[in-house]
Simulated assay, not measured.
Amino acid sequence: MTPCSSHFLARIRLLAHAADALDIPVLVTRQYPRGLGPLLPELAEALPDSVPTFDKMTFSCCADRAISEALEGDRDQVLLAGIETHVCVLQTALDLAARGRHAYVITDACASRAPADHRQALARLSREGVRLASVESTVFEWLRDARHPQFRELARAIRDLPKTDSDS
């Protein structure tokens, strides 16, 4: 998947929606927006206004003091989604793991401009002990039970996701 593909955008939007519906804390980072541009409008629209947003120059979020402080707390699991898998996502996940945090990379909510870079990064992350998951498995883990009040809405949203070539 490429960063602007409809498949990628749909999955990352669903992940953001599910996190909001289930009160899962979210923070957004933007790599050098002055040079690379703002957050894509399709993603910005999917996020509540209350989501903290950090601009950064470091590739790893852990190397930025404000982001690192925002990640502190009693949660030991951090889920990562975004771009570029082989740069910012990779370095952040490896740094989180090195700090004893459980880093999860949501593979279908991450992308690189070159598919080979995305695949290589996922292979490396897996070898280095970072956990890999999909949007669908993550949302169902968050729900835990088909009787959850948000189950029908989120299950319908998952079912309506556009299929990718790798979904067949």
Rank of each mutant, 00 (worst) to 15 (best):
S134V: 01
T92N: 06
Y104A: 02
G100K: 08
L96C: 08
R124Y: 10
H102C: 09
C88P: 02
E128P: 00
V89G: 07
C110E: 08
L94T: 09
A123G: 03
T85G: 01
R113F: 10
S134A: 06
L125M: 13
A93F: 02
T92A: 03
H102D: 14
R131S: 09
A109R: 07
A93L: 02
A114K: 12
V89H: 08
S134F: 02
T85C: 00
V89I: 15
A121Q: 05
A116R: 14
V130W: 05
A98Y: 03
R127K: 12
Q91W: 11
D108T: 07
A97P: 00
R101G: 01
Q91N: 13
A114N: 15
Y104N: 09
A116N: 11
A103W: 06
H118K: 11
H86L: 08
G100V: 06
V89C: 03
R124H: 12
D95G: 10
V89T: 08
S126H: 15
T92W: 01
V89D: 02
A114Y: 11
Q91D: 13
L90T: 13
Y104V: 15
I106T: 04
A93V: 02
Y104C: 11
A121P: 05
S134Y: 02
S112H: 06
V87Q: 09
C88T: 01
A97H: 15
V130G: 07
D108P: 02
Q91G: 03
V87R: 03
P115T: 04
L94G: 09
H118G: 07
S126M: 10
E128A: 09
R119V: 12
L90Q: 14
Q120A: 15
A111P: 08
C88Q: 04
T92G: 05
L122D: 06
H86I: 06
L132D: 03
S134P: 03
V130H: 04
R99C: 11
H86V: 05
R119I: 10
L94A: 08
E128I: 00
Y104L: 15
L132F: 03
S112G: 07
G100D: 10
L94R: 11
E128K: 10
V105G: 09
R124C: 09
Q91C: 01
Y104K: 10
H102K: 12
R113G: 14
R113P: 00
R113D: 04
A121D: 10
S126L: 11
G100M: 04
R127E: 13
R101M: 11
A98D: 15
L122I: 01
C110F: 02
T92K: 06
H118W: 15
A114D: 15
D95W: 12
T85S: 14
R99G: 08
R101L: 14
